[in-house]
């Protein structure tokens, strides 16, 4: 009787020990990745470079601290009338040092990306994308813009991701949607 009881309590303690160790082994821990906190990749800067053959001018939209916080700074664009410009786009993440070039990454995934240029009403400007992806569809990192008579208005630049390139305005996700004030003089 005594012995049996002893046996039972021994068996019991072993069982509990075993189970407790199972607990210890299976308990999940926080990843030890405190230091690797990674922010979602930002595009802080969009730069439009206008080249009329003799001079180049650059205008930027820049939001160094990302969404919220300080408001973005947006250059006003001033162009000459009746001029044809070759326009190129540069994208960067300037919140990091060294600054990260994102233009090349868009280029690498050219099939998935397209820019849309939309001049506002009243602005005498037209835009035509000149570069092509491997399927022959437009990308928009390079384009040609033609100004006519003096006017003021806006120019909206969008970058779409995974859009249907035949109807990019209403499909895909918007990565960039920036509006500049433009004066043609």
């Amino acid at each position: 009787m005594e012995l049996k009881f002893l046996f039972n309590s021994k068996l019991l303690s072993i069982t509990f020990l075993l189970l407790t160790s199972v607990f210890l082994f299976t308990a999940c821990e926080k990843d030890d990745d405190d230091d690797e906190e990674e922010e979602v990749e930002l595009i802080t800067t969009l730069e439009l470079t206008f080249d009329d053959g003799s001079t180049t001018q650059a205008f930027t939209f820049q939001d160094l601290d990302g969404d919220g916080g300080n408001a973005p700074s947006i250059d006003d664009i001033t162009l000459s009338s009746n001029t044809t410009y070759n326009v190129s786009i540069r994208l960067a993440n300037d919140s990091e040092t060294p600054s990260e070039d994102i233009t090349a990454e868009v280029m690498e995934e050219d099939l998935d990306h397209i820019f849309i240029f939309t001049p506002g009403a009243g602005l005498n400007l037209s835009a035509q994308i000149t570069d092509q992806d491997s399927n022959g569809a437009p990308i928009g990192l390079s384009s040609q813009m033609v100004t006519l008579g003096a006017s003021t208005g806006t120019l909206n630049v969008k970058l779409k991701h995974e859009a249907d390139k035949s109807s990019p305005a209403t499909t895909g996700e918007t990565d960039i949607d920036v509006t500049f004030n433009v004066t043609i003089q």
Partner: peptide, 9 residues
Amino acid sequence: PILTIRGAF
């Protein structure tokens, strides 16, 4: 609205 590089939210 808040203005960001992806437009105004």
